[in-house]
Design a protein around this nucleic acid. Sequence first.
DNA 1: TCTTTAATATGACAAATATCATATTTTTAA
DNA 2: TTAAAAATATGATATTTGTCATATTAAAGA
Lengths: 226, 226
Amino acid sequence: MSKCEQCIVREFSSLKALTKDELVKLSDCKTSHIIKKGEVIFEEGENVNGIYCIKDGICKLTKLSANGKDHIVKLVTKGELLGQRSMISDEPVNLSAVALEDMQVCFIPKSEVMGYFDKNNQFSMNVMKTICGDLKDADDHMVNLAQKTVKERLAETLLYLNDTFGKNEDNSLKVQLSRDELASMIGTATESCIRLLSDFNKLGLIELNGKKIVLKDINALKKLAD
Amino acid sequence: MSKCEQCIVREFSSLKALTKDELVKLSDCKTSHIIKKGEVIFEEGENVNGIYCIKDGICKLTKLSANGKDHIVKLVTKGELLGQRSMISDEPVNLSAVALEDMQVCFIPKSEVMGYFDKNNQFSMNVMKTICGDLKDADDHMVNLAQKTVKERLAETLLYLNDTFGKNEDNSLKVQLSRDELASMIGTATESCIRLLSDFNKLGLIELNGKKIVLKDINALKKLAD
DNA sequence: TCTTTAATATGACAAATATCATATTTTTAA
DNA sequence: TTAAAAATATGATATTTGTCATATTAAAGA
């Protein structure tokens, strides 16, 4: 069992506020898990009863819409926590979490985390700030969905993926989403997404190589995204 | 100066966790304000440095989109607090607040509120739960904007206004939004909104009387909204 | 009250986007 | 390795939604 005190990623989450004693205790009650690409960490409506700390990998948070299609609400990567909202609200999770690549995660039971809220004020503030950040992002996202065209949203999303998750040695975006997933992130039909990617490709804004996407003209994309 | 201990609306907000002593102290440092319909409480980008407690009235929270149009992110009414996210994140507000009707609000300076976070755990948890609720709502809203048609969103929004804010004696919706505001809530062009309202009217789903809207066939609207 | 301005309404049309069909490529698994 | 399935691609077309023009009505001021 790995030790939380020595885990680097905890430094990037709300858990960085924990004392050495708290971390030692945490090491004992956490459980580590390997999640394979495509596997579900939790499903919308489930009672999770704790939070997941992502040690490595990326996952998507999705929500099923009334028409039966999944919408990707957010991508979450190493150093971030999953399930905080649900735990605090004391409700089932409202989103599903599915691995986009192989992941290492640690599960911390609710009983343990809730104790920190009482005893460690800095931890509480960290969690609050994270959720406030998520709320602000959600507001921004909402306005984009409501007011921007699909083309603008696609350009913006490509830039977001580039800025947030970086690229491989061959310059392609590190997060590899299927066309279907990309479409469900920007809120459009898969065919529309494919078509626009083709257009971007023909215009020299991006380069397509199977699932790999290389951003060729960042400035032009920025202009397109508004 | 009215006394917070005797204020009913505080019972509906996170402030209900405050002790009698805290409330007495709060009474001294808060300031009361009358906001006329159409007036701005705060504007996107401003440093508010505190929170507003809504004693009476309704306001809209809007965000300017890249194309210059306002989008209504949320409606907020008596018993709720404004500006929590910004205060916790220690950032300027990301939304503007504009009164939809005459309002009574109290402003509580940041210095006072931040003290509660340290000393009153129940207050912290209340605030966290509120923000978590907002985040869940935002997620839902996002998926609706991404996946539902304008018609579905209009039906849904009319039902939301009815359920959340109720109706007048003449059965018309209590919150009176202009067509323009309604459009900027559902994320569509004003003309599209007007046209669909006309359609709903002709279909007998609603009744239009100037700005007044009466929901005639709730079930049919629910079916339309999915 | 009258005049001006803003809000609502509706038609005509254009643009954006979805849907359906089908081909091609890639991936998966037998 | 090969057959089957899934993902990607693209054309044709339908539907939705936005835009512009222009009435009509309601609201606000002088």
